[in-house]
Design a protein around this nucleic acid. Structure first.
Lengths: 396, 396
DNA sequence: GAACTTCGTCCTGTAGAAAGAAAAAGATCG
DNA sequence: CGATCTTTTTCTTTCTACAGGACGAAGTTC
């Protein structure tokens, strides 16, 4: 068996690899229908990809009226890893070349423990997947972290909720440990890529993914590619002001969106509602022990607690206010709502929609779906593998 | 003399044409230093461009130590026209291939008179330039209109301040009249391109151009290209809400940015200030005759009128509020303030800067210049010619 | 089993590009 | 002023890549 030595040699090969990744295995003849190449050229490049070990033959297709055509597919040995580091958890998944998840582990982990601890944990999780026999070799790793990243350098830059990570060489460290290409990006960016690849954003050019979790951030896709802005902080909407005399925020300003509807704000409001007795459900929950979190609010709202539902509606309104402005500005083709709070589901969605459709420019909203994430917890890891596979499958 | 038959035949030729447009004439040898082509290939493509009539020889360059190299430049016959249709005026300019303005005429004209009248007027203005001997033939026209445009179709779509223009086939009509390629875009988009080509945005990838005039709009450049969004309405920030209980806006919502600081709003506030006696300068002006406009406020502020200056500061604050959110989201490398109100100059700029630098995400503002337009009234026409020349100079 | 269709492989002609040689034009230096 | 060296241009040769076609292999249909 040829070993997986390398990268595609030219743009044609890169194109073919992406077709096989996104469309799965198919016959050489079908590939010929899609690409605009002469048969001799197509076969030449395919044979080269086979020689590189990136592509392999997989039997014969059904006849289309004549001789059966040979099926080609991405090498069965190809493996990508996606690592999604959240504020309080790590997700690691391993996929094949088509980015289908072969194994996925998730573990709680506080990002504030610092890069060495957290990355060690992530690599341990990857080792666990290795020990399950899911792969022998990894051909690329994508990593998402919950803060701004210099994509070029592969390092976080002054991330507010990641003490100790500033300029830590994540890409270099992981690359050296695993001996494969590594790319690092913001977690909302890779979630947006995930939705583009396998979720609701398939084949839509300009997409916003709004993640409401511990923080509130926004992944931006322009022409199907991540838009990162001048210094890699594009999409940082958590600290947009929604009210001049709102609550103080940890960032120093007042009235920030996150001060209303981030994880901490929701927990704060939940405690208040429980103590004041406005919410029997939350009061009950509080009596049972630990402090309340955003998840409790979700549960309460789902259980029909009026105060909790009111909190969700209120938060949805605030998010809608910010989104309305951004949508007028950006005119996306789709908005995806994701993150832990997305489990609040249709209460939240309805409120966001109502505000956005009322306030945004009519032209920007007339064909604008606003939907919940299809992928949920796997959007991040899938997007991370998509990020690195785009890189590995591109001609150097 | 070879006639100007056509378009470049491949990407190399397109690249060479853009180099000659943006860098001006230069020797074949210097071109060879810049492009990554073998000498034989470079000369082959240059000779073809000469045969197409797009490029011509222009004597010999100074020696660099040996034989003198031949200078090439874009054909001296090449002419582009830029048409900037504003709410109350038309600007038409004719440029050579390097997009240097050879002639520029400006005339008041109400866009509400409808497309036939307005476009006739614009073509008359172009004829005037023709009669001055500035050109014999036009090789492309770029047109900017003050409203949303379907760039693909070359037609305005439901433009709020352009009654009668909805879906009027501007590109087709002008194209047939002049027999050359025509592109139509939003006026702020072409202004952004103008600043990219010849103004403060040279060589900056991600740029916002905020135009404050009759309306308030925003041109967006991503990687040096206009970002238009899903339905061509990206950048439409005039109706973002800045205050929940603000004044009513013509659009039906309340508290829109334009309701505070558009041309109409400024005129309204000026009248109020004049009548109430808060502004002696404006009261004087009002006594002299016609109704007050935004221009009067600018004059008053420049003359040191306190009430007018206060209006400008107030408006700048509102603009800054909206921009702060957008800048956090978009993380541009430069923000340019343009439009008639930009003549308010540094009072306005200082207020916008103050709000933005205080409120936007620190990472997004740490290296963010916010400047006034360098080009002023010519940004639109220059950008329009840039738009069409990019099209004409691209391989079909 | 004959005729037709589709697919894979091989071969050849052509176009395009790279590399080099030679010529042209100019600079430098004695 | 002439010899020599540089730089640029032009011309020629060589090489590679690709398109297109021919042909055999494999399948289907009747």
């Amino acid at each position: 068996m040829a070993q997986l030595t390398g990268r595609p040699e030219n743009a044609h090969q890169a194109r073919l690899l992406c077709l096989l990744r996104d469309g799965g295995r198919r016959s050489r003849a079908e590939l010929g229908d899609v690409v605009h190449l002469s048969r001799s050229k197509l076969f030449l490049e395919l044979d080269r990809l086979v020689a590189l070990g990136l592509v392999e033959q997989a039997g014969l297709a059904a006849s289309r009226g004549g001789r059966r055509s040979g099926i080609v597919r991405l090498s069965g040995q190809l493996r990508f890893a996606g690592v999604d580091i959240g504020a309080t958890s790590i997700d690691v998944a391993v996929t094949n070349g088509e980015l289908e998840i072969l194994g996925h582990v998730s573990a709680p982990c506080d990002v504030r423990e610092g890069p060495t601890v957290v990355l060690d944990r992530a690599l341990d999780m990857l080792d666990k997947l290795r020990s399950e026999g899911l792969f022998r070799e990894i051909h690329g790793v994508g990593i998402g972290v919950p803060g701004p990243v210099s994509f070029r350098d592969g390092v976080p830059v002054v991330p507010p909720i990641m003490p100790g990570w500033d300029r830590f060489p994540v890409r270099e460290v992981v690359g050296q440990r695993l001996g494969c290409p590594v790319l690092v990006d913001n977690d909302v960016n890779i979630m947006a890529l995930g939705e583009l690849h396998a979720g609701s954003a398939r084949s839509i050019d300009d997409v916003l993914l709004v993640k409401i979790g511990t923080g509130i951030g926004c992944g931006i896709l322009v022409k199907g590619e991540i838009y990162r802005g001048m210094s890699g902080s594009a999409g940082d909407i958590g600290h947009v002001r929604v009210d001049d005399d709102g609550p103080e925020c940890a960032c120093g300003n007042v009235g920030c969106l996150e001060a209303y509807f981030g994880g901490a704000a929701l927990a704060r409001d939940a405690m208040a509602a429980a103590r004041s007795g406005r919410s029997p459900y939350l009061a009950d929950r509080l009596d049972q022990g630990a402090a309340l979190t955003a998840a409790d609010v979700a549960a309460a709202a789902a259980a029909g607690d009026a105060a909790a539902a009111q909190m969700v509606r209120e938060g949805g309104r605030r998010v809608g206010q910010v989104l309305a402005g951004i949508i007028s500005f950006f005119n996306p083709g789709l908005v995806v709502i994701a993150g832990g709070v997305a489990r609040l589901g249709h209460t939240l969605l309805a409120e966001v929609r109502s505000v956005v459709y009322q306030r945004s420019a009519p032209l920007a909203t007339e064909n604008l779906p606003i939907v919940l994430s299809e992928l949920g917890d796997t959007a991040g890891v899938i997007g991370a593998t998509r990020l690195i596979s785009d890189h590995v499958f591109s001609a150097s």
